[in-house]
Design a binder for these strands. Structure first.
Length: 575
RNA sequence: GCGCCCGUAGCUCAGCCGGAUAGAGCACGAGAUUUCUAAUCUCGGUGUCAGAGGUUCGAAUCCUCUCGGGCGCGCCA
């Protein structure tokens, strides 16, 4: 039994008494604002006209007619609502038992596949703070879909093709010509990139050189391709180090270059479908008939392909290869038009599966006043307004270490590991502090926050509960939820029962921040209970009571651990 | 000009497929530790829910318009 079954049970009870479909009643059920009112409520207002009676009267009549039985122990009318109160036995089953078993009975394999394209940075530059958005959002979505029964394929669509490689080669050969043997790792690539831009400012001829290098690459010149490959491999190696710290994994690193040999066929199919139209010497697909004014550019006047062509080829490839039901693109708001165009063109090509394409867009990141000068800054790399992600992690880890030192609780051997978990956890959590569509203003205070609503707050609660369980010496699973009679325990039980619904909702909306929000609330409710030592001392002389309370603690702990895992945040046992 | 996103407490944000008195964190002030981790907990809020209309028994939530902010609208990806 889970919470959904309970909703259904309540709806069925009402459906038996009035002429309304049970699923309609079920959808109307709400949570009463006050716990004393009950756990579930059915509003009777819509029935007023039909039954020609006042809602409170309807509610009272209904409540009187329905006989109370498990899973409910009380059904009462409050104003225009019929409210249901759950039995502790039922709550114990849907909340504690499910969490202890780590199985809410709702996440069976659904036989569907979702492809998630996220992070997708350009090579030759380390990840900057703004990359945290797509990266953590995508990684959390991958875990959410996996938990809720999907087969998940994660893809890093690296920006590994373009004139920026030419720029790299210009700087590389210049360094070589002056007698150096330049390194090629990711940090070295950044240095080369910066050197190029510095040199290009006074020497515009370098731009032509860069283009020439890229042309050589496109033409397949063996030496150039070899160098390109080295830069790509080194970039991926460098990126991977950071991904590992963030608990991010990709099934495939099929970047832009991967589709070079696949675009001609795509363009041919567009041609065969009669979709290509000449416009100012370029080839486009007109989309006005489907409500998009801007045409989709397929081929430039110089005959070169565009990123739209590449994304079309990639979509075809992904569908062919993975037969997805959904294909998510975790990419910033700016690309909204682009993806609408891509999906529309795919549709015109006759692909019904194009409906599975979804742009999971998110707001822009800018910098709070004070990060770069007095004004708010957009983060122009050219103006030197860039903060690398590993620099943020480094500061967070350092701050965590200071706090661990000050608390004097960290056990010596693990202090470094703990600082890493907490520091990184704080940074990751800051990404989930708002709905993804909101623009984010980066500030060091927010990114490094370890108090109040924060990753470390959740980790701290988890650690406290873990050591409580250990300290109790009780074997988890031997309690009886019916002994958890206080209002606070009940609030915790209800929160626990919500967990699977939260995961499902977060997945349906592609909104991992829902999980973060839920975990904060779960901890807030539990910590209130925990702090009330007079009434809720966990470890007591009463063995049965202690066992029951430890079960509750373990249920919260397991739920927290699971939720943190979804977000990619470590759950330390001690801190 | 057209399109998308955002506008809720001093700040950062939840609540938005309509429901019972609009909620958190931060900041600020006061308090809690002889007993399970104080990265914690408790108490302290007179908010034009940007504004105006509309739909509804009921609107922060849905519709229309206006204002403000961000982003985008073919040869960069």
């Amino acid at each position: 039994m889970n919470l959904n079954d309970i909703y259904t049970a309540a709806a069925d009870l009402i459906a038996a008494k009035i002429d309304l479909p049970a699923d309609e009643i079920r959808a109307a059920l709400v949570r009463p604002p006050q716990p004393e009112m009950g756990d579930l409520g059915f509003p009777c207002f819509t029935l007023a006209k039909k039954l020609r009676a006042a809602p409170p009267k309807i509610a009272a009549d209904l409540a009187a007619q329905i006989s109370v039985a498990e899973p409910f122990i009380k059904i009462t009318a409050v104003g225009g609502y019929v409210n249901f109160t759950l039995s502790l036995a039922a709550l114990g089953e849907v909340a504690v038992a499910a969490a202890l078993a780590d199985d809410w009975g709702e996440f069976a394999d659904n036989g569907k596949t979702v492809v998630i394209d996220f992070s997708s940075p350009n090579i030759a530059k380390p990840l900057a703070v703004h990359h945290i958005r797509s990266t953590m959002l995508g990684a959390a979505l991958a875990r959410l879909y996996a938990i809720t029964g999907w087969r998940v394929v994660t893809i890093n669509h690296l920006g590994d093709w373009g004139t920026n490689f030419g720029q790299l080669m210009v700087a590389y050969t210049r360094a070589k010509n002056s007698g150096e043997t330049p390194a090629t790792d990711l940090d070295a690539q950044l240095k080369l990139y910066l050197e190029y831009h510095q040199a290009a400012e006074t020497n515009p001829a370098l731009e032509g050189e860069a283009r020439a290098w890229f042309k050589k690459l496109e033409d397949g010149d063996a030496e150039t391709v070899k160098m390109w490959k080295i830069f790509v491999d080194e970039s991926v190696k460098g990126l991977q180090k950071l991904y590992d710290r963030l608990n991010v994994k990709f099934d495939h690193y099929t970047g832009e270059s991967f589709f070079n040999d696949k675009m001609a066929a795509t363009q041919r199919r567009l041609q065969d479908a009669g979709l290509l139209v000449k416009s100012d010497g370029a080839l486009v697909v007109e989309l006005q008939d489907v409500g998009i004014d801007a045409p989709c550019l397929i081929q430039k006047t110089d005959g070169a392909t565009t990123y739209a062509t590449r994304d079309l080829a990639a979509a075809e490839y992904r569908h062919h290869e993975y037969n997805f039901d959904k294909c998510l693109y975790v990419v910033a708001n700016q690309q909204e038009l682009h993806f609408r165009q891509i999906f529309a063109v795919l549709k015109k090509m006759g692909y019904a599966w194009a409906d599975g394409g979804e742009h999971v867009k998110f707001g822009m990141l800018s910098f709070a006043a004070g990060v770069f000068g007095e004004e708010r800054a957009t983060g122009s790399t050219r103006k030197g307004q860039i903060i690398f992600l590993d620099a943020v992690l480094a500061r967070a880890v350092e701050k965590a270490r200071e706090i661990i030192g000050a608390n004097g609780r960290g056990d010596e051997g693990n202090a470094a590991i703990l600082a890493e978990q907490v520091g990184v956890g704080a940074v990751i959590f800051s990404e989930f502090m708002q709905r993804r569509q909101k623009d984010v203003i980066f500030s060091w205070d927010k990114a490094l926050n370890m108090q109040g609503d924060s990753g470390p707050y959740l980790q701290y609660t988890h650690a406290r509960l873990s050591s409580l369980i250990t300290k109790s010496g009780v074997v988890v699973g031997g309690g009886d939820a019916q002994l958890l009679t206080s209002a606070l325990s009940r609030a915790v039980l209800l929160m626990l029962a919500e967990f699977p619904r939260v995961l499902l909702g977060a997945t349906a909306e592609n909104e991992p921040s829902r999980v973060a929000e839920y975990l904060l609330e779960l901890c807030a409710v539990f910590n209130r209970l925990y702090a009330d030592k007079k009434e809720h001392q966990i470890i007591t002389d009463d063995a049965a009571l202690t066992a029951s309370r430890i079960d509750l603690v373990a249920a919260v702990r397991n739920t927290l651990r699971r939720g943190l895992a979804v977000l990619g945040i470590a759950a330390p046992e001690k801190m």
